[in-house]
Design a protein around this nucleic acid. Structure first.
Length: 284
DNA sequence: CACTTGACCTGTCCGC
DNA sequence: TGCGGACAGGTCAAGT
């Protein structure tokens, strides 16, 4: 599911609600989802909630709970059997855990965090904190720069993309070693903002186009966060609320609609096996 | 070696 | 109403 904006929206919600709380109990309903020994986690307190690419870390001192939500993962926080804020979606009302709940964390104040994941691609792993922080090894090692970091310049973007010279730019920009956190929705949106045809080979792009794309990536991700993330089917924040970025998106999911920028129509094609949306009249 | 397809899972939607 | 197939936010592995 979530790309960078959705994971960041979840991170902010977790920071608000569970920072400082002690994990008292872990119930594992889907054994594949939880990797590691829950005994090492029970009794530990959350000292930080961070995000790297599309992964979330709950820092517990010596160890960290590392989450990847993949396509349909959700983290929903419930206090006293009521939603803390917002409005529960219909299918959540009165029935948590739902049939897709895989792990339930109970905190010292008896509030709970539900890890739901319909397709079971997502996971949470118990890892050593120190290893997590060393970004040159392990699971975080192959990730490209964070798009909001100062060190993510257009020159770095260009240089990383040039490791994928012959790929279509849409496929290359989704590679997590190029820039981390861009997935199928925001890649289409970034290329629309940059006015670049998603089928173009990386090797054909000019410096001006790398600059535009760099701006487009940052702007589309920021807009995603601003609107609470993208909900196609599953994404909700920790309060169970959907996100509204897709109401503002230019091309994703807009097949057949008029382009926001010209008289053309938005088209849908397949690239690297993924649905790709663009306007062939103004993306060249 | 570069690129594509399949696998991992479950659910929904669409056409017949 | 039922059935088959395509498709869905991600990432690996295997195949060509």
């Amino acid at each position: 599911m979530p790309e960078l904006p959705e994971v960041e929206v979840i991170r902010r919600g977790l920071e608000k609600y569970i920072l400082g709380k002690t994990i008292q109990k872990i119930e594992i309903l889907g054994s594949k989802t939880f990797q590691g020994d829950p005994k090492n986690v029970e009794g530990e307190s959350v000292v930080a909630v961070w995000r790297r690419a599309k992964m979330l870390g709950l820092e517990l001192g010596e160890i960290t709970l590392l989450f990847h939500l993949k396509m349909t993962g959700q983290l929903v926080y419930i206090s006293d059997k009521r939603f803390v804020g917002g409005h529960p979606t219909e299918d959540m009302k009165g029935k948590m855990p739902s049939n897709s709940t895989r792990v339930i964390f109970t905190f010292g104040d008896n509030s709970k965090l539900y890890f739901n994941d319909q397709r079971r691609f997502g996971w949470v792993r118990v890892v050593k904190s120190a290893k997590c922080k060393v970004q040159n090894e392990g699971i975080l090692g192959r990730l490209g720069p964070e798009p909001f970091d100062k060190n993510f310049t257009w020159q770095i973007l260009k240089s990383n993309l040039l490791n994928h010279k012959s790929q279509p730019i849409k496929v290359a920009i989704m590679d997590q070693s190029v820039v981390s956190g861009v997935g199928n929705i925001y890649s289409s949106e970034s290329l629309f903002l940059a006015k670049i045809d998603p089928r173009r080979k990386v090797s054909e792009l000019s410096d001006q186009e790398f600059k535009s794309l760099h701006r487009g990536v940052i702007k589309s991700l920021r807009d995603g966060i601003k609107h609470g993330g993208s909900t196609r089917a599953h994404f909700v924040n920790v309060e169970g609320e959907r996100g509204y970025f897709l109401d503002y998106a230019n091309v994703y999911g807009k097949e057949g609609y008029k382009c926001n920028n010209c008289p053309g129509k938005v088209q849908k094609i397949q690239l690297g096996g993924r649905g790709t949306y663009f306007c062939s009249s103004c993306q060249k």
